[in-house]
Design a protein around this nucleic acid. Structure first.
Length: 118
DNA sequence: AATGTGACACAAT
DNA sequence: TATTGTGCCACAT
């Protein structure tokens, strides 16, 4: 029998499940995802999960749609090339200025709302 | 086992 | 308003 899943595996999977449903043209934040998963304070872990997702291309995650709470592209250095994150966002109709998203508030998508509707 | 390090967030200054 | 400090928690060493 396979060993039981670790807490990390479950949390990472939940993170990816949310990232996967971020609507086109919208973005969210690490903290928002953590809250949606009932783990406020685990924002850093969400970021860790995202960085780990680099080695899992089969997940097809729109990782570029996850920014920090101010709309800054803090994860750009994990893309190859780093400019790829900005390029994808612009391709989806966003405007990036100084590594930050313009109109972040207006384009913010709260994953917590999805759970309520569920 | 202990310590340092982050794709973070918020409070205090 | 802008810095700086503190809490956070999984992971690597």
């Amino acid at each position: 029998m396979p060993k039981k899943n670790t807490e990390r595996d479950n949390f990472y999977a939940d993170v990816y499940a949310i990232v996967r449903v971020i609507p086109l043209g919208r973005v969210t934040s690490y903290g928002a995802i953590a809250k949606a998963l009932n783990r406020p304070g685990a924002a850093r872990i969400v970021g860790y999960a995202m960085r780990a997702s680099i080695h899992r291309p089969e997940l097809q995650l729109p990782a570029h749609r996850v920014l920090n709470r101010k709309g800054v592209l803090t994860g750009k250095n994990s893309f190859s090339p780093p400019g790829e994150m900005q390029r994808r966002l612009e391709q989806e109709g966003h405007v990036v200025e100084n590594d930050a998203l313009k109109d972040f508030e207006a384009r913010f998508w709260n994953p917590g709302l999805e759970l309520e509707v569920r």
